[in-house]
Design a protein around this nucleic acid. Sequence first.
DNA 1: TTCCAGGCGTATC
DNA 2: GATACGCATGGA
Length: 275
Amino acid sequence: MDYKISKYDIILKQADFDLDETLDCGQAFRWEKVSSSGGVKTYCGHYLNNPLKISQQGDIFIFHNTTEDDFLNLWASYFDLYTDYGKLKARFCADKTMKEAIGYAGGIRLLRQDKWEALCSFIISQNNNIPRIKGIISRLCKHYGGFPTYGDLAKETEESLGFLRSGFRAKYLIDAATKFDRGELDLEEISKSEINEARKSLMQIKGVGPKVAECALLYGMYRVEAFPMDVWIKRVMKDYYPEGLPDCVKGFEGIAQQYLFHYIRTANANNSLAD
DNA sequence: TTCCAGGCGTATC
DNA sequence: GATACGCATGGA
């Protein structure tokens, strides 16, 4: 990794990385763009309630007020910096559609998020839109002074979570929290299970179906072979891959999915403008 | 006003 | 196992 320490900051030179494409592409919901001017963009957010302010100018990144220890142990892992995306992208580009998708947003990286937070986030995501998902999670974190533990949520009721305005999803959050709090399910164990076993375990939670389970596995447990099928990816499959995914993404379907999700949504937005 | 959003539970066949 | 429908909320 090509980085140096400058007073209280870490300065990193990193290819295949863009903050907008990675932090605002619907995989994480707690990052906020705080400024963008003169080619420098800055985001603030958290991993496991550790705060970070990060800036980007081209392929140079500044991790503000960060120790080398935190950079190497927390953030390099969170941003998946130990994975060679150049190599992955080259492999994916054997497919024409993948090549085009990567051309739209080659700076997407799969974040290694917290298991519990990712599960909750995607329970909240169902039949919902991204701005409102962010609003609900923001109210949740504001209320608890950080992302709540499952112990915190296990104490709540549908009524006491009314402030979230999360609708029918509140009871699903409580059911998940209760199952982990009582030890009926174990996130560490699930993350190490064979993937079909893991899917089955997660789907014991009310409000967790195939899609949410797949997201929890991909975004919270870095199971890159998981492939969440939402309304957008269903369109991709219908329009581009009626015969199924190409061989070149095998084993990394989840990372390929990130590029495809961004691609179909961007293409759709552009078509809407043209209509 | 109506439609839709990174789906799922339930009822019905 | 497949298919239809309701669901809370709020932005477009």
